[in-house]
Design a protein around this nucleic acid. Structure first.
Lengths: 215, 215, 215, 215
DNA sequence: TGTTAAACGAGACGGTACGTCACGTCTTCCG
DNA sequence: CGGAAGACGTGACGTACCGTCTCGTTTAACA
């Protein structure tokens, strides 16, 4: 977890330099987009940033945490929540822009590298969940809420399930590469998810689908 | 890619010892289930197997390839394709047994480690796709075919899409950990996928959903 | 060399704090006697003294210089020049008390550490010579002068040579550890040095032995 | 302690390469003679020798141990035991050649650096005593034995004391630098030691002076 | 008595070297 | 001649201190 997540400057003494931090983040970002997260080394970042290794470790406990901060802001910025006027349109738009960024030659595999990193670093996993996955999901909730308000899907539809139904298949193809992450896949996926949401919940009547957060 | 995939023993001289191979695979398996794939080292395997490092590299080109062979057979064996008599029942059964093995304390995270490894090793990625992902998907196709035969879902339903709709959300929660991989999630997911398959394709008439394999 | 050797307070502003200086010296002393000079670090001293590193560097240019000031005063104080009434008695007394302090479990190796430090720090070497070695030698000269006055050794005996003959073997065993620094060694050494001083110069007649200081 | 002191090749597998060892020793030697022992770094040696750091650590546990092996052979070779026909002549010759090598601009301070290193490394100290100090002393014993045989000094004279009387003052000036290590000092020192040996023991009659080795 | 400049504690900074680890390759000798 | 043993060069790791520097905060002497 990046230490800057703890903003309190309790101690006296020389404060952390913003210049140093920016230099590190920029260097890390450049190395990641040019060579992938596997080519990122703390020594490489230190050298390119003109910074001592200790200055990196003072801020980030691991390569993954640094990569996260170097990269996630940019990713989040390029993925706004669409509002097309229809549920399926919103889903389609969301999937399409996700597919596009996953296919981008520069940085398209960055998220894959981060997810890989997350699998062996519990601390990073927590940050990943809270500051990336959950955050995007939170941002996307209005899509479901508006769909309910419009009467496109039943009241009580489980937003978590709907989001998993949308993002799950996208990430699945992204990480396993068994099938193309094409634009048409995005379109058809959106259609299927819309159908599931519209009809899936009805079968169970008024009952609300529930999923509980874990950990 | 494990070289034993090339079974031909062209050369003369002493053939590769099966005992050596088994010892390596067993050692690798033990290390993976006890400490996770991140703790697996070639040196550790060599020592535990009582084997020279060269004997490992003679057979497997990378840690990931070895781990794959050490682990995938067992995983495949524990995930038979169910035949419950109904589409949703088959999906539910599939999801449930997947969830169960993902939650197993020993080895539950092994697949996560392999997927992580795959992200930075194109050769391994190919093996992973062909010998794990695609293989399981192939094995699961009868579920869809039987559902079509029973008339539960339209003729022309895209099996790839249906499988992605099922496995995608499972892997999504498994790798990101944002929500619990519970039994009830498996049940509800199966329900939603069934609803999508039953209604999604219908909306678009007779048109067949298509997805093309990539790479 | 401690900058406090230059007492002039030309500047305005807050003067150097005596409390700070004492805290540093005490901390250094404690660390040296507890762990040897090799374990002494500027950061350790700063922390233990509750002092900024800059406050140390403001006063002492190097670890060795600080150690010197932290330690030498105490050493000099415990080694008075004896006056037993005979030349050999004085030598014996000198050697014995030297041996005793070299064998003391706390601090017995401190001088060894300082001599080690001195070998790679010319500035410290100068301080060491002028404020420790030469000072002790100066203090011990009365032993030789009284011996001449008593007629125990020839007029014109070289005090430098005699002191080297006494201290040389002591330090030699102390630093190399090839033989015990025992009390009986001190006694026998004193006897040999007395014999040398009484007879060595005589052989060469009235000629005065000379040695010149260097550097 | 250099591991090559244990010559037994018990294990199988690739044996230590002599080429690597020589390269390391040569690199170390060059760095020491060009910059002093304080400038010697393991990384520097590795780079200059074209060798991995691990290959150094595999053989020598510390910088001091490496320096010892890189340097001591050459030193021992340049200091033969003289045989001039007289006790004082032998002592003088010994002291003179010692002085000369201590004053040599290249490598003259190397022994000082090693003695410094020895003060904070007990393992190295043992090697130093056994393979340098004691060894030279052993080689010099014939000087005393021949002097006894010639009747220049009493039977039962303590060779350890005589050697300390000779080497002690030399090392004392060498390490402390309080007075010049001149040729004339060597001469006068030899004279004093001869006088002490001739007269010192006599005073105490037949009694044999004794010193016991320690540790 | 208020101003002011240096000393203060704290600790961040760019560095260097440390000693360790695992990599993938290469070499030796045993069976 | 296959295979265990393990040495090899490589390169990154994370740590420890170095000596310098920048913060705000005292604090004593000057004005």
């Amino acid at each position: 977890m990046p230490k800057r997540a703890i903003p309190a400057q309790e101690k006296r003494g020389r404060p952390r330099s913003r210049r140093t931090e920016t230099a590190i983040l920029r260097a890390a970002n450049e190395l990641i987009t040019s060579g992938g997260l596997a080519d990122l080394t703390m020594e490489g970042v230190a050298e390119r940033a003109g910074v001592g290794k200790a200055s990196i470790y003072r801020r980030w406990p691991s390569k993954g945490a640094l990569a996260f901060d170097a990269v996630v802001g940019g990713i989040l910025a390029t993925q706004p929540t669409p509002d097309t006027g229809s549920f399926e349109g919103d889903l389609r738009q969301t999937a399409r822009s996700w597919v596009r960024s996953a296919n981008s030659p520069r940085g398209g595999r960055t998220v894959a590298g981060l997810i890989a990193e997350v699998q062996s670093d519990p601390d990073l996993a927590k940050v990943w969940r809270e500051r990336f996955v959950s955050r995007i999901r939170q941002e996307r909730r209005p899509i479901i809420e508006r769909a309910i308000a419009r009467g496109e899907i039943p009241v009580g539809s489980d937003p978590e399930m709907i989001l998993d139904l949308l993002y799950g298949p996208l990430y699945h193809r992204y990480l396993n590469g068994h099938l193309a992450l094409s634009d048409s896949f995005a379109k058809e996926l959106a259609h299927m998810v819309a159908a599931a949401a519209a009809n899936g919940a009805v079968v169970r009547g008024r009952e609300v689908l529930r999923s509980r957060a874990v950990r």
